[in-house]
């Protein structure tokens, strides 16, 4: 019962971070800020989602697989954001500054 509750809270919190990541994607002024929103908010969102799902998992191996998925997404999102940012800089895009 308690486990179900913790699980629900974790997954609920996860959706808030996914919503925040998407809000940043739409509201932030340039590509660099949007990358911040995607890499950070979504990583914690996915982490919480995985905590919520792991609590419902039937075996250790399912939990290990969920953690493995989280690690792979961490690695790919940080590499991808680095590549996008590097390319944007190479094309001469200047970061947005506060007016």
């Amino acid at each position: 019962m308690l486990i179900d509750l913790v699980s629900m809270v974790a997954i609920g919190a996860a959706t808030i971070f996914f919503v925040a990541g998407s809000a940043g994607m739409l509201r932030f002024p340039d590509v660099f800020m949007r990358l911040h929103a995607m890499t950070k908010a979504d990583n914690l969102g996915l982490g919480l989602l995985i905590v919520g799902l792991a609590l419902q998992a039937s075996s250790f191996w399912v939990i290990a697989k969920l953690v493995l998925i989280w690690l792979l997404v961490l690695v790919s999102s940080t590499s991808a954001s680095h590549l996008v940012a590097r390319d944007a800089l190479a094309r001469g895009l200047r970061p947005w500054r506060n007016p």
């Binding site: 971070f17 990541g21 940043g24 932030f28 800020m33 950070k40 914690l44 506060n98």
Partner: peptide
């Protein structure tokens, strides 16, 4: 640190005033 970082970015993205001061 990643929890702190995510909450920080989420807060900035969701607040109506959107407090950001980016720099390189």
């Amino acid at each position: 640190r990643s929890v702190v970082g995510s909450i920080d970015v989420a807060r900035r993205a969701l607040l109506p005033s959107m407090p950001i001061a980016p720099a390189m």
